[in-house]
Amino acid sequence: MLAVPCPLLNRPNFPVLSSSPDRLLLELCSIRVPGRSAPRLDDVSLQLRPGERVALVGPSGAGKSTLLAVANGLIRPEAGELFWNGAAPARSRRRRRLQQALIGTLWQDLRLIEELTVQQNLNAARLARWGWPRALLNLMLPVETAANTEVLARVDLSADLLEQPVTALSGGQRQRLALARLLRQDPLLLLADEPLAHLDPRLARDLLDLLLKQASGGRALLLSLHRPDLLAGFDRVVALRQGRVVLDAAPSGLTGQQLAALYRSEA
């Protein structure tokens, strides 16, 4: 009901590395991803402008994770088109990597590399831009400590942790480290898959604020979440149900009834 037609524009066929206010950061056009019985995504279209903060809501199994996986390039849709910062996914491996570097994902299971130190994990976010020598050096010596100290400070973690193994961190610290790694990657498009799922209310609020703060200066945030009480800071709410977009509106315009309806099938 909310299908947004894809504008037929002349698009560059090379990755664009900086954002511009008149260019969409993410554009999904009639995306379809097949599933076992019903399609996981069916005719889904979505647009993100620079600076926008969009919450993705819907019951479990509605297709939120699939949509995020399409958005970060892990899943290739069966039909439909996808544009990052105005450009289609590049064919050449090198260009595609630069394009991927513009998309940062905060994973629900964090996906930190347990065997490496905090510093090495942070630097792993730079691998798209680094050559082999520096990538190997990172596994032997402290590399780019200043930049890492700075991102750790932004998520309220002490620089003393830099040389600690990830296994030594507490749950909350790990969550922050994952965010710090995302900041270190410095992407234009921030995707987050249920980052608040297992956090207590205070931690969840803190992390969300941090994330919302990042979506400024030409960046955009697409975040899936489960809790209607945290929608306040978002510019838009996109609701999915059975693989389809059923709502795309500002949170202020949402009534409690509408919200309840979104999550109803879970009961």
Partner: peptide, 27 residues
């Protein structure tokens, strides 16, 4: 998963394998 995350962030396949998977296998 870790390797996938690295690939999604633009790491090359070899570096992603080295960082993401060899880490767990090494010992």
């Amino acid at each position: 998963q870790a390797e996938e995350a690295l690939v999604a962030a633009g790491a090359g396949p070899r570096l992603a394998l080295l960082y993401g998977r060899f880490s767990a296998l090494a010992r």
